[in-house]
């Protein structure tokens, strides 16, 4: 459980972090809850870690032009307990409080989770369901990526090399919107075997997103068609057939919760 030797740089600004990244085989360190275990098993061997956990610009939650803006280095625990989130984006508080355990929630960050794009992560389904955009910054400045265009496969995203997620922007849902995140956890890791996030707007439009059941999280507003096209994951704990069954059960649970 000892990683290979690596350099460590604590960045004070996003620009400094981006500059540091351009130097060889470097990785961003935020909460470290996915990266460090992989490094300890020597499955990941970066030559340098660029620590962004002290960049204050990447932390915190605010309301801005009809959007809720969450800094990428904000922890799951902070999101779960933030008043603004509870009042205007309760599905994020609900979802964040179901991630891992207390220690994970106190360290892990929303940006780290999204950039890692674990197929069983909770945040991907949540950001998809609320029509979020992911704000990233690289050498060529900032850009915004729609959540629906962000997850491109197993552990892969639309982020380009040396791009850092700086914020997650969510349009504040109109009054009367109902939303829920329903999750069936893997009992050991407490990652999602099936996670289903549903947002039902007052006009009846319904966003549905799944995580845990395939290579990457995805929107499934037309759920029946979407689920029939899915290649379900299968592992020693849950077979593809069982995941498929659970996906329907949890979709039903979620829909029942928002009507």
């Amino acid at each position: 459980m000892i990683p290979v030797a690596f350099d460590y740089q604590k960045a004070k600004t996003v620009d400094e972090a981006i500059a540091a990244l351009s130097n060889g085989n470097s990785k961003i360190l935020a909460g470290g809850h996915s990266l460090l275990p992989a490094m300890k098993l020597r499955m990941s061997q970066p030559s340098k870690l660029v620590d962004i956990s002290s960049i204050s610009a990447l932390k915190g939650i605010k309301e801005e032009d009809g959007e809720i803006v969450i800094g990428a280095a904000t922890t799951h625990a902070d999101i779960a307990s933030e008043k603004l989130i509870k009042n205007k984006l309760s599905i994020f508080a609900e979802g964040a409080s179901m991630i891992g355990d207390v220690q994970v929630r106190n360290h892990g960050t929303i940006g780290g989770s999204l950039a890692h794009a674990d197929p069983a992560g909770d945040w991907p389904a949540l950001v998809l369901a609320v029509d979020a955009t992911i704000e990233a910054q690289g050498k060529n400045g900032k850009r915004r990526i729609k959540a629906t265009e962000f997850f491109t496969g197993l552990f892969s995203t639309a982020l380009q090399e040396n791009e850092i997620i700086i914020a997650i922007r969510v349009p504040i849902p109109p009054e009367g919107t109902k939303a829920t995140y329903q999750k069936f956890s893997q009992p050991a890791s407490r990652f999602a075997i099936v996670g289903c996030a549903v947002v039902r707007f007052p006009d009846g439009k319904t966003n549905i997103a799944f995580t845990g059941i395939s290579d990457n999280a995805f929107r499934a507003d037309n759920a029946e068609a979407a689920l029939s096209a899915v290649i379900f994951l299968s592992d020693h704990y849950a077979s593809a057939e069982y995941r498929k069954h659970l996906a329907k059960v949890y979709l039903k649970k979620a829909l029942q919760a928002v009507v």
Partner: peptide, 16 residues
Amino acid sequence: LTNASYMDYCMPRADD
């Protein structure tokens, strides 16, 4: 041994 870690081998916890 395919579940040789606490991510896969489920040790019971108090809330179980």
